[in-house]
Design a protein around this nucleic acid. Structure first.
Lengths: 125, 125
DNA sequence: TTAGGTGCAAAACCTTTGCCATCCC
DNA sequence: GGGATGGCAAAGGTTTTGCACCTAA
């Protein structure tokens, strides 16, 4: 169904090569270094397709714009309230919590996301 | 510093009287029932001020638009992936997690947010 | 009196979409 | 060939902002 194109390959590679959870616009400017006339619409379309196929993750971290994560495995995030950067948190995902909440609410709980907030090493000084 | 106005009072009352975590636009349409010529800009400005003063909470639940919570106390949320509704989850906030992550990362962790995802009672049938 | 708030409308921003050319299978 | 994708630009939706006029303190 989905075809492989140079644009998609470049976008995926850019995303996999960083852990900075970039915005679509940042991906766009990086991609232009390789494909000078790639369009922003194409970046958005491919980011969407890559999310659907599970190769990347769209983060539910509000702020002005969506951010994407080249690492689609389940993990938690930390956001610095001063510089706005987002870091991965190496803490095991607590699946028992989902079960507990499911029991309590009667909902079907598939997964959860955690975002820690505070100040990163650089900003807390 | 912040003044009390009828607009702000109405917006806060609307938000406190529901647990549906509405968007700015929904608050706007409710507010118009009381102040027919209130402007959307005023709603946005007051929502921001109320967040700053801690009387309400802006949720970090992406989707097309921000959502607001009249209950600013720390609590978790559940979002139904089918109908999109957001529910409060009555589960104690785990402050020990913040300490653990702080120790592991070296960051100053102030708090965290959890969003559970799945299907609500109505949608899972 | 006056800093801060309001209404209105325009602007800013991010994201999506329509159209047609192009590419992949 | 034919459906999927790309580039471009225009449209769409949400949020912010400039400005002149009010209003709470």
């Amino acid at each position: 169904m989905f075809k492989d194109t140079r644009q998609k390959e470049v976008i995926l590679r850019i995303l996999k090569s960083t852990n900075m959870h970039p915005t679509a616009d940042w991906v766009y400017s990086e991609a232009r270094k390789e494909i000078s006339n790639i369009s922003l619409g194409t970046v958005y379309r491919n980011l969407k397709v890559l999310c659907i196929s599970g190769e990347i993750l769209e983060l539910d971290i509000c702020g002005s714009s969506s951010r994407f994560d080249g690492n689609p495995g389940s993990h938690y995030h930390f956001r610095c309230e001063t510089c706005g950067r987002i870091f991965d948190v190496d803490e095991p995902v607590n699946r028992a919590l989902d079960v507990k909440v499911a029991r309590k609410t009667g909902f079907e709980v598939l997964y959860h996301r955690i975002e820690f907030r505070g100040l990163c090493t650089e900003c807390k000084e």
